[in-house]
């Protein structure tokens, strides 16, 4: 049974006004437990709108969202449960920090769940550890942290709810390459350690290729493709047609191939280096 599925989900923007438009249309997706799904698409393709349906922030016009076998709009209680089962971390989450200390801020979610003090304490420390925040930072004001630390503190605030599905909307936006790699590494190890499902919204094909197990491509409010990284990335022509670029290394490999040097396919620099090194001795 999939942990999260959308059945025929449609959402309208500006309903009832002349500017009414379909933000997403007839979305059918099943997400299996333990997957790390990269959701990619052009700006305005409906990725963010779709993920806001998964935890019940937006109510679909049509269709159902099933989390853990339950329709989240069945009653008020199910909707609230969905908020905690599906942890959604928005773009630029550092702008949601508000408490006096980082510790208090991370504990905001667990507190809202009505957990006991000891349990909250345990979860905060664990979440801080997952995102690589040092213990001494927990007593500082969140506004005294550096940009990257703030972001990790905010992500910890969502992880501390220990959701079954963690959704991160553009978690690497606006970070330098080092900060970006650090966040991606953190997401990967979080998933490996907890075995939970992770959805990563991004428009960087490189980022998704690095860590995702499956890829969901959105275009104009609909699901364009959904499959493993290899399945999706091999459709480079279709991807380009909807305004998405395959990673630069893949492009290099394609050009080499069209010039008579078939090295197979690679989507990350590391994989490409591996292939070239393994073939290097033979072909030169």
């Amino acid at each position: 049974m999939p942990i999260l599925s959308a059945n025929g989900v449609t959402h309208l923007y500006n309903k009832g006004t002349p500017s009414q438009s379909k933000a997403i249309y007839d979305i059918n997706v099943d997400i299996e437990e333990g997957e790390l799904v990269g959701i990619i698409g052009h700006t305005g393709s409906g990725k963010s709108t779709l993920v806001q349906h998964f935890n019940g922030l937006l109510k679909p016009e049509n269709g159902q969202i099933i989390v853990d076998g339950k329709d989240i709009w069945k009653d008020k209680k199910s909707t609230r449960e969905a908020r905690f089962k599906v942890g959604l971390c928005f773009q630029y989450p550092e702008y949601q920090l508000f408490e006096e200390t980082v510790y208090k801020d991370i504990s905001f979610g667990p507190k809202n769940m009505g957990l006991k003090e000891e349990e909250i304490h345990k979860r905060v420390l664990l979440a801080a550890e997952y995102v690589g925040l040092k213990k001494e930072l927990l007593e500082k004001s969140p506004f005294d942290l550096s940009g990257g630390e703030k972001r990790r503190a905010a992500i910890a605030g969502v992880i501390a709810m220990q959701p079954k599905v963690l959704i991160l909307d553009e978690p690497t936006a606006g970070l330098d390459p080092k900060g970006r790699d650090r966040i991606l590494e953190m997401i990967k190890s979080y998933r490996e350690r907890t075995g939970s499902t992770v959805l990563l919204v991004s428009h960087s094909m490189e980022d998704v290729a690095k860590i995702a197990t499956k890829v969901l491509v959105m275009n104009k409010g609909q699901v364009e493709m959904y499959g493993t990284v290899d399945e999706v990335y091999s459709h480079s022509v279709e991807l380009r047609n909807i305004g998405l670029n395959v990673p630069q290394v893949s492009k290099v490999f394609e050009i080499l191939k069209s010039n008579g040097m078939n090295l197979g396919s690679a989507y990350t620099v590391e994989k490409a280096a591996e292939i070239i090194l393994s073939k290097g001795g033979a072909s030169v």
């Binding site: 609230r80 928005f90 702008y95 949601q96 809202n112 605030g157 709810m161």
Partner: peptide, 13 residues
């Protein structure tokens, strides 16, 4: 709107 949604996602009532 954005901040409200972010806090709602963390269970703010």
């Amino acid at each position: 709107d954005r901040i409200t949604n972010a806090q709602k996602a963390r269970g703010a009532n």
